[in-house]
């Protein structure tokens, strides 16, 4: 299995990643996110695993489990979670991982009732 970056319309594809299993790609993505944030040690976050349109829910949950474990091992508090196919690129097989730092206020707003076709709670 080869994975490639969905950094789609970049001309330079040198950044393409060659990894062999889901754990490796999840670690690569989560490491990249952690590095960009600086530190998330002790920080509460929303962890959102999104399918790009051609990846089944079973794989999305697999990715979520791996990402959660990776982040928790590094002190991140997964306070909220979302897993599903919400932001797609037609039927592309692939995933994205989104992390949002949450404070009390953002958590309350995330939890607030919503009634849309795609999100409702």
């Amino acid at each position: 299995m080869r994975w490639r970056s969905v950094s789609a319309f970049t001309a330079n594809r040198a950044a393409r990643d060659k990894v062999t299993d889901a754990s490796a790609i999840v670690a690569l993505i989560c490491r990249h996110i952690l590095d960009d944030f600086g530190s998330l040690d002790g920080q509460s976050v929303l962890l959102f695993v999104n399918g790009l349109g051609g990846t089944p829910q079973s794989e999305l949950y697999l990715v979520f489990g791996l990402a959660r474990a990776f982040l928790e091992e590094r002190g991140v508090v997964i306070a909220r979670s979302l897993v599903g196919t919400y932001v797609t690129s037609l039927d592309m097989a692939g995933i994205s991982i989104t992390v949002t730092q949450l404070d009390e206020r953002l958590t309350r707003l995330w939890d607030a009732p919503v009634l849309t076709a795609a999100l409702r709670w």
Binding site: R2, W3, I29, N50, G54, D91, M92, I95, L102
Partner: peptide, 25 residues
């Protein structure tokens, strides 16, 4: 407060080579 990173799978229909992938997003 939000960051995202993602990867697509190689060899997926319609994205079999790098050049065609540029229409992806």
């Amino acid at each position: 407060a939000t960051l995202n990173d993602g990867r697509g799978l190689e060899g997926h229909d319609g994205a079999a080579d790098d050049a065609r992938d540029v229409s992806a997003w």
